[in-house]
């Protein structure tokens, strides 16, 4: 068994490595920068609470699971908001994030596509292709069957490709 010190180091190591992943995941689910930060922080804090009380084999999966549950709770509490309203309240990525992209057109391109992807596909696509999680890990996080996740990833990928193609055509035409 690990000592407390080793546990702490392990947990902080997960934070160092995956804080960005969790933040990004929250951002693309909530489309709100400040909320995303808040939920990321809450997820890690709650994860630490769990670790301090019982054995956890996969800290990363646990953080994702907690973040996912927090987001679901938030979504249930909130009423549907229009995209314009979201934009007003901080929908766009931070200036830091924007600077990282080649230009503002890329940022706009990313957001246009992201908002069009159905929620059920968005989270699994992000976890699979951006965060690098395997279908089995995603299934564990979301509490669903691995096969179902694989199917969802496959369908999401098809939907995304179609979206990308459509938006490319639209951008060319415009």
């Amino acid at each position: 068994m690990k000592s407390n010190k080793q546990q702490e180091n392990a947990f902080l190591k997960v934070y160092d490595k995956h804080a960005d992943d969790i933040y990004r995941h929250c951002f693309f689910r909530l489309f709100h920068e400040e909320l995303a930060k808040e939920y990321m922080q809450e997820a890690f804090l709650r994860c630490w609470q769990v670790i301090s009380e019982k054995e956890v084999k996969n800290i990363r999966a646990l953080v994702y699971k907690i973040a996912n549950n927090l987001i679901i709770d938030y979504s249930r509490k909130q009423k549907e908001e229009s995209l314009e309203k979201r934009m007003e309240s901080g929908w766009e990525p931070s200036e830091f994030g924007k600077k990282e992209m080649e230009n503002s057109v890329d940022a706009q391109y990313l957001l246009e596509i992201s908002k069009q992807i159905p929620e059920e596909f968005r989270s699994v696509l992000l976890m699979r292709y951006v965060d690098g999680l395997k279908p089995k890990e995603i299934a564990e996080i979301l509490g669903e069957d691995t096969n179902l996740i694989s199917v969802r990833i496959h369908r999401g990928k098809s939907a995304l490709k179609k979206l990308v193609a459509m938006i490319c055509i639209l951008l060319i035409l415009v």
Binding site: D20, F27, K37, E100, Y109, L110, S114, Y129
Partner: peptide
């Protein structure tokens, strides 16, 4: 490109350090 750009969405170093 979508995936590459998505990966660029992350915390600022300052935010990350503060929360640590």
């Amino acid at each position: 490109k979508f995936i590459q750009n998505a990966k660029k969405i992350r915390l600022s170093p300052k935010d990350k350090q503060n929360f640590r």
